[in-house]
Amino acid sequence: MQRIPILKMGPYLLVSIQVDMDDRTAMALQDDLMEQIVRHRARGVLIDISALDVVDSFIGRMLADTAAMARVLDADTVVVGMQPSVAITLVELGLALTGVRSALNIERGMDLLRSRIEGPGIADGHHEE
C-alpha cells in the first residue's frame, strides 16, 4: 500500500495527493495526519488535490472527516486545487463537503490558514463560512 507523504512547514502540515488513492491509502493518510497534528502541534493542514481527477464519495468523506477531526485537535484544514470537473461531479453526486474550507491554489490556501491562525489582515479578503 502506498503512503502519501506529509510535509511539515512551521505550524502547518502540507499534503499533495499525487496518486489515485485506493480506500486504504485514503484512510492511512487520515490516520497519519491526525498523528502528525498531535506530534507537531500543527495549527493548520493544507491538502492539495489538484492532481486528483476523481473524488468519489469515499475520498470526499475522508476529506470532510479529516477536516472535522483536525478541528477537534485545534487545527484548521484547507483543501486546495480542486479541478472544475471534479467539483461539478461532486455537486451532482450530492456531496457538499460541509465544513471543509477550500481555496483555488496552494498560495491562497496558505493565506487562508495564516489569516485564521495569525488573525485577520493577511489574507486576500476571501471569506469562508
Binding site: D53, V54, S57, Q83, S85, I88, T89
Partner: peptide
Amino acid sequence: VEQTKIVTAASE
C-alpha cells in the same frame, strides 16, 4: 466533465 462523471459513478 463527462469522463469524470462516468468514472465517479463507476467508482461508487
